[in-house]
């Protein structure tokens, strides 16, 4: 044990820390430093503090991976953009974007059941099917309606965002959300649907699963924790707004509709299709960037420029677009 080290006998030992922390005036500081040269005990104390600092600096912190750092960057910029645009640039699209995000977070906060679709009385003569309980939360200007048919609870969603929670049993009616370009069938679930510009933009599933049947496309099952979204070449302002809060912006050109995770709190750890896709895209982007740089360093300016153009074509919103732009100026 080294209890004696903790209770120093030199009356000036406090100066060791005082010098270290800039607590002394210049004159006193030089006196303290002189004392340090003469007093072994204070020197040892000073050495102990140095060692402590060294050990603290050596405390292992496992570095964040490049992908994690990138993903965090995307989340931050998307959210900052959403917040900034909501604050200072209110246009129709922007307002809509923010209200969608607001709706999304309302859901996260658990404030469900803004509207409750009551079981229809017409069911009474069809005991073999009972109405499912459908809670629906519509975002601001959403146009929607609901009808109960013999075997189906039907919700027509023309435009906007609707979040639904369906509680059903084996004998419940089918629950179908009709959208301008098809329909989405619930299979006992919590989910949301975004429609804009006459087309379904996104479907996200929290629990259970849904089947999406859109015109001209094969039926698609979206399961819990995943989200389908329209490919990014369409006009998708509302979807972008959800992307900003629900998932990283998948900027890689994806020609097919994608299934993407909606893990909101920590997309970084979800081993979802989206994060894998994103990781793959980030790696492709890195390779494309490094390829151009390598060519430039090898003095192959023409090839480097071609590679830079290819990068910009493939990753118009890439992280390295500014650096790549400089390659083109060579």
């Amino acid at each position: 044990m080294s209890d004696d080290a903790k209770e120093p006998s030199c009356a000036r030992s406090w100066e060791v820390e005082a010098v270290r922390d800039g607590r002394l005036l210049a004159a006193n500081e030089s006196a303290a430093v002189r004392h340090l040269g003469e007093c072994a005990e204070c020197r040892k104390l000073s050495g102990d503090f140095d060692r402590l600092g060294l050990l603290l600096r050596e405390v292992e912190v496992s570095p964040d991976s490049d992908v994690a750092v990138r993903r965090l960057r995307q989340r931050i910029l998307a959210q900052a953009d959403a917040e900034l645009t909501g604050r200072s640039r209110p246009s129709h699209a922007r307002t809509r974007k923010i209200s969608l995000i607001a709706a999304f977070f309302m859901i996260l906060a658990g404030s469900f059941a803004a509207f409750r679709l009551l079981p229809s009385p017409t069911l009474a003569h069809r005991p073999q099917t009972t109405a499912a309980t459908v809670d629906a939360l519509a975002e601001g200007n959403t146009h929607w309606s609901r009808q109960t048919e013999t075997d189906v609870e039907r919700i027509d969603l023309d435009d906007g965002t609707l979040r639904l929670r369906v509680q059903r049993t084996q004998s419940s009616k089918r629950v179908i959300v009709r959208v301008p370009d098809g329909e989405i069938e619930d299979v006992g679930t919590v989910f949301y649907v975004v429609v804009a510009h006459g087309a379904t933009q996104a479907v996200g599933v929290d629990e259970g699963e849904v089947v999406i049947r859109l015109k001209g496309a094969n039926p698609l099952v979206v399961t819990a924790g995943h989200r389908w979204q329209r490919p990014s070449d369409s006009v998708t302002v509302p979807v972008e707004s959800l992307k900003s809060s629900a998932m990283p912006l998948g900027k890689g050109a994806d020609p097919e509709p994608t299934l993407a995770s909606r893990s909101t709190t920590n997309p970084g750890t979800s081993d979802s299709v989206s994060s894998r896709t994103e990781r793959a895209n980030a790696e492709r982007e890195d390779r494309a960037y490094l390829h151009a740089i390598r060519l430039l360093r090898e003095g192959k300016h023409t090839e480097a420029k071609a590679a830079a153009k290819e990068y910009l074509r493939s990753f118009p919103d890439g992280f390295r677009r500014e650096e790549i732009g400089q390659v083109l100026q060579y």
């Binding site: 405390v59 912190v61 496992s62 570095p63 964040d64 994690a68 750092v69 965090l72 960057r73 989340r75 931050i76 959210q79 900052a80 917040e83 920590n266 970084g268």
Partner: peptide, 27 residues
């Protein structure tokens, strides 16, 4: 600055909190 801040936040708050803290920082 993000990498340095992430390391700092990991030491000061714990690794599991670092990303959230840095996100909040830049926002």
């Amino acid at each position: 600055h993000a990498r340095a801040l992430l390391r700092f936040a990991s030491r000061a708050a714990g690794q599991h909190e670092a990303e959230d803290v840095i996100q909040a920082t830049f926002l």
